[in-house]
């Protein structure tokens, strides 16, 4: 554990709290992509089911259970409030996730991490590829609506920050732990890059106190 990884995990937890707080305070799931949340739930299932067979630390186990639990709790809350969106979600949450799923599965089968062809390792690699692109339905939804509530914006920012910190952690581990995972690094870079536009708009609008609207 190093400071970057800890900050990454805390950003991740913060993003989940912000999302749930947004839904609670507005009593609405407007502007939140159900598809992105469903993809995250699938990411956590395929990556963290090893919690039953492989023990790392109490911290590791607790966080895995937290991420699994909150992702399904979020889906449950969103499903319950599905009619509260100001615009029917099915008309704007239209990103075709099939391509993300098929692409991630293909990459995991062709290039499993460390070239280890086990079920758990292929699922782990699949989860990394899928996570790297899982935000796309949310970003497309944001682009279509053109504006977002501030809590939604903070949620996406914290989520983007999370993988950005992991990239710093991997650079740190490469030099100080003599540890490196190419799959983690490449997917982490892609994931962080997908947020880069968003980071820029966030900096321009939110940090300067303006309403969040895409140009």
């Amino acid at each position: 554990m190093n400071i970057f990884r800890f900050l990454a995990d805390m950003s991740h937890v913060l993003s989940i709290l912000l999302l749930l707080q947004k839904i609670r305070s507005s009593n609405s799931v407007a502007g939140i992509s159900f598809k992105t949340q469903a993809l995250y739930a699938l990411v956590f299932v395929t990556r963290y089911l090893d919690v039953f067979i492989y023990f790392v630390s109490i911290y590791n186990t607790a966080m895995k259970i937290l991420f699994l639990g909150t992702s399904f709790y979020t889906l449950h809350v969103m499903y319950k409030k599905r009619d509260s969106g100001t615009i029917a979600a099915n008309t704007i949450d239209t990103f075709r996730v099939e391509f993300l799923l098929i692409g991630s599965l293909a990459l995991a089968l062709i290039f499993p991490s460390e070239r280890i062809y086990s079920v758990t390792n292929i699922l782990w690699t699949f989860s990394l590829w899928l996570e790297s692109v899982a935000i796309l339905p949310q970003l497309f939804m944001l682009q279509r609506t053109g504006q977002a509530e501030s809590l939604t914006v903070h949620y996406i920012f914290a989520l983007g920050l999370y993988r950005g910190f992991y990239v710093l952690n991997w650079i740190y581990r490469y030099y100080f732990d003599n540890w490196f995972s190419l799959t983690s690094f490449v997917t982490g870079i892609i994931q962080t890059a997908l947020y880069s536009d968003f980071f820029w708009v966030y900096y321009q609008k939110v940090l300067k106190g303006k309403k969040f609207e895409l140009p």
């Binding site: 990884r5 995990d9 991740h12 990556r47 090893d50 067979i53 492989y54 790392v56 630390s57 590791n60 966080m63 895995k64 991420f67 991490s113 460390e114 280890i116 086990s118 079920v119 758990t120 390792n121 782990w124 992991y166 952690n169 983690s184």
Partner: peptide, 10 residues
């Protein structure tokens, strides 16, 4: 199944 490729990160 097991620790053939231990993933210690989240």
């Amino acid at each position: 199944l097991g620790d053939e490729n231990a993933h210690d990160e989240l």
